[in-house]
Design a protein around this nucleic acid. Structure first.
Lengths: 131, 131
DNA sequence: TTATCTGCAAACATTTTGCAGCGAG
DNA sequence: CTCGCTGCAAAATGTTTGCAGATAA
């Protein structure tokens, strides 16, 4: 029910070789640069499908656009993203999970989900931009 | 440098009487219903100014739109939002702050900030929608 | 063959901006 | 009187969708 087309293959390969979070528009541009011609709508549709299948992580940038990334872990986790260069570290945090569950319980909420992302400046960028 | 106009007053009053996160469009509609006529662009501009001044909290909804709310606390905190009715509880969480700081340190990131929001279904909505 | 997928362009939703006129200070 | 503020409509973004033709299975 999910066909492996030339376009899907190109997107998968691109994601496999990309470490950081990218918007659909950026991915589309990157594909273009590499000679693959894939329609923007197709990129959107593909990323939507991948996100739904849990094959990529989605997070919202500061301006509200969707950013995608193929993650190493398949399970739930969070990210520490460098605001300068976009370098991303995956964080596995039991303490946040416990916190979320406890807060939900305390206020009688059910089916509690959460988002938690960290943004900072990595050591390399801190050194480069002069502390 | 910041003039107190009829529109600004209307927005402030509306926010003072609203508990939950609302989008600029929703606020605009609410103002209209109460007989105040305020342009949509003005609502956007006003909310932007209030957010910048730290008088309201901003968070991104699931579809990426900006949601605003006048919060009780002036200090840093998080939210537990009901995905059905929008009811919001403010959470003050030392454990998340500690977690964020520790993770940042461990990976040599500086100036680490974080976002963390909880979404769930409140007891009232769970009962109403049949468990 | 045939149900999916794709590209394109049009449609949408949200937010921003240009500009002439209004009005708070 | 003056500049900031407002409304309106146009524009800019980011994303979705309708449809005819292409294509994987």
């Amino acid at each position: 029910m999910q066909r492996m087309t030339r376009q899907r293959t190109a997107v998968s390969e691109l994601l496999a070789g990309t470490e950081d979070f990218r918007s659909a528009q950026q991915l589309h541009e990157m594909l273009r640069e590499r000679g693959h011609s894939v329609g923007l709508a197709t990129v959107y549709r593909t990323m939507q499908a991948l996100a739904e299948a849990g094959d990529v992580d989605v997070l919202r940038g500061a301006e509200g656009e969707a950013l995608y990334r193929q993650c190493q872990r398949t399970s739930h986790h969070h990210h520490l993203v460098c605001r300068e260069c976009g370098r991303t570290v995956e964080i596995d945090s039991a303490s946040v999970e416990r916190w979320a569950a406890a807060v939900g319980d305390a206020h009688d909420f059910i089916d509690v989900e959460h988002t938690a992302e960290l943004f900072g400046t990595c050591a390399a960028c801190a050194a480069r931009t002069g502390r």
